Amino acid sequence: MNTKMKVLSLALVGLAGFAGSAMAACPAGPTTADGGAWTSKSVLPPSTSSLTIATPGLDSTECKLVSSLGPSTTASSFVRYNHASPETSYRFQFLVDTNALSDFSSTDNVVVFQAPAQNTANGFNRLLRVSLVAGPAGAKRIRFIAQCGSGTFSCAQSFATDLTPGVNRIEGFLKVGAGAAGELKYWVNAAAGTTEPTESGSIANLDNAAWGGVAAASLGLTAPSAAFKTNHATQAVGFDTFDSRRTTYIGH
């Protein structure tokens, strides 16, 4: 089994499942039709929502994906990659640059990553959401919302350290299974290296087998809160170096 599923660097030019900083040029757009590597993109009204590729990238790459939303709670601006088959052991990593976002109010939040599921269960068609949420004094933090098999069917945890200004590295490891076999581990701005360190946080006993497995990856901005819509319309967020694997820690 190949442990590397998809590397979409350079915002995300792909070649045989891999892209790196040595590749020559940025694509016209993020999807395969534009020369990129993502299956599809979604940019929903208002017309000021935007999804573009810009230079330079965030990780010594040629370019990055830049997403911004118009002033609507139904706006979205993201790309999606459909996996060939659902994954029950799923690691992912991406870079997110929040430097252009002004300070967050207490109710500012927006989704930056989703893992759509093979099955819809208990009213949800996804296994995981990763969101930007408010920290103290205008800071931004990262929150993980994993589907789980009891209660409201959502188990959430916010990382209790503010994101750094500018670029942040997010990595996660989602296991899909019954009872304690379902688990999420995550790392936020882990030290450089490819040996797995102690995780920044985890959510155990997800009991998430009903959702089948991770069917796709979605990267960009969607599901803004009313406060985010009001306070951050047209403010850009950058993304780069998306990587997904089955078993091995990604690191950097």
Rank of each mutant, 00 (worst) to 15 (best):
residue 164 T to Q: 13
residue 29 G to K: 08
residue 107 T to D: 13
residue 134 A to P: 07
residue 106 S to E: 10
residue 76 S to P: 09
residue 202 S to W: 00
residue 200 S to N: 13
residue 43 V to W: 06
residue 234 T to V: 15
residue 161 T to C: 07
residue 88 T to E: 05
residue 194 T to I: 15
residue 251 G to Y: 00
residue 81 Y to K: 08
residue 242 F to K: 00
residue 106 S to Y: 09
residue 90 Y to F: 15
residue 94 F to I: 06
residue 181 A to D: 11
residue 93 Q to H: 09
residue 205 N to P: 00
residue 156 A to W: 04
residue 4 K to V: 01
residue 247 T to V: 14
residue 121 A to W: 10
residue 57 G to V: 02
residue 90 Y to G: 01
residue 91 R to D: 00
residue 76 S to E: 14
residue 35 G to S: 11
residue 153 F to E: 08
residue 97 D to F: 13
residue 36 G to V: 05
residue 227 A to L: 11
residue 71 P to R: 14
residue 226 A to H: 11
residue 185 K to S: 07
residue 114 Q to A: 09
residue 210 A to H: 05
residue 54 A to N: 12
residue 159 F to N: 14
residue 15 L to I: 10
residue 242 F to D: 03
residue 10 L to T: 14
residue 105 S to P: 05
residue 214 V to M: 02
residue 194 T to Y: 12
residue 6 K to Y: 12
residue 100 A to Q: 14
residue 231 N to W: 09
residue 30 P to Q: 05
residue 181 A to R: 00
residue 21 S to V: 06
residue 49 S to P: 03
residue 169 R to M: 07
residue 250 I to V: 04
residue 51 L to W: 01
residue 127 L to C: 04
residue 116 P to M: 06
residue 15 L to F: 10
residue 72 S to Q: 11
residue 198 T to H: 03
residue 98 T to G: 01
residue 65 L to Y: 12
residue 230 T to A: 12
residue 209 A to V: 02
residue 44 L to V: 06
residue 22 A to V: 13
residue 141 R to P: 01
residue 25 A to P: 00
residue 25 A to W: 00
residue 70 G to P: 06
residue 110 V to E: 13
residue 119 N to T: 12
residue 199 E to T: 07
residue 124 F to I: 08
residue 81 Y to G: 02
residue 112 V to A: 02
residue 250 I to F: 03
